[in-house]
């Protein structure tokens, strides 16, 4: 998880950012980088070109609704987006983002509304806070279950499982995945 000291720039979008906007079907056959270059183009044709590593995507309600296509989250990761902040997330997108090690964090709508386009945000997923460096404000994020936080620390579900598999080989009874361990 990169957390640049100067923060990432906020790219603010509204409610109901669906997966067809994030990963348009017409490019689903293309390479991940080609697909990512069309991310959100129907709303902001310059987004993929101007977003830089560490930047933050800010949505509203029900971010990521629609398809299960993980490419919606993959595209944001490819573009270097360091976190997605929203008032609520569609379940599959939320899981996909976390599984890829991309923090998808829930904020109060009133706090989200205070974030302006281009504001500098320092997202501390672990601490559960977002610092708006431009406005000198701090917003609390809804808590993330500990097993997911551990997964994000490992860089996502597959690296996390790899570690689990390795320790399961040493202690044969340890569960391979899940929340119990």
């Amino acid at each position: 998880m990169s957390e640049p000291a100067q923060g990432g720039r906020a790219f603010v979008f509204g409610d109901d950012i669906d997966t067809d906007l994030l990963a348009p079907g017409a490019y689903m056959k293309s390479s991940p980088d080609e697909l990512a270059s069309h991310c959100l183009e129907a709303l902001d044709p310059d987004f993929a070109r101007t977003v830089r590593p560490g930047d933050v995507v800010v949505g509203g309600r029900n971010f990521g609704l629609g398809s299960s296509r993980e490419q919606a989250a993959v595209s944001l990761v490819r573009l270097g987006v360091s976190a997605v902040l929203a008032a609520s997330f569609a379940r599959i997108f939320w899981r996909n983002a976390m599984n890829l090690g991309l923090p998808a964090l829930t904020l109060e709508p009133a706090d989200l509304a205070r974030i302006g386009q281009g504001d500098r945000l320092a997202v501390a997923a672990e601490a559960g806070e977002v610092r708006n460096l431009t406005r000198g404000e701090v917003y609390a994020t809804a808590p993330v279950p500990p097993h997911l936080m551990a997964m994000i620390r490992d860089g996502g579900l597959i690296p996390h499982l790899k570690r689990r598999f390795a320790s399961a080989a040493k202690e044969p009874r340890a569960p391979a995945s899940g929340v119990a361990a």
Binding site: S68, R69, E70, A73, I92, F93, R95, N96, N99, L100, G156, L157, I158, L161, A176, S177
Partner: peptide, 12 residues
């Protein structure tokens, strides 16, 4: 589920 969740389910 998305592909990573599904791959993990397929494996475990």
């Amino acid at each position: 589920y998305g592909a990573t969740d599904m791959a993990a389910i397929a494996a475990t």
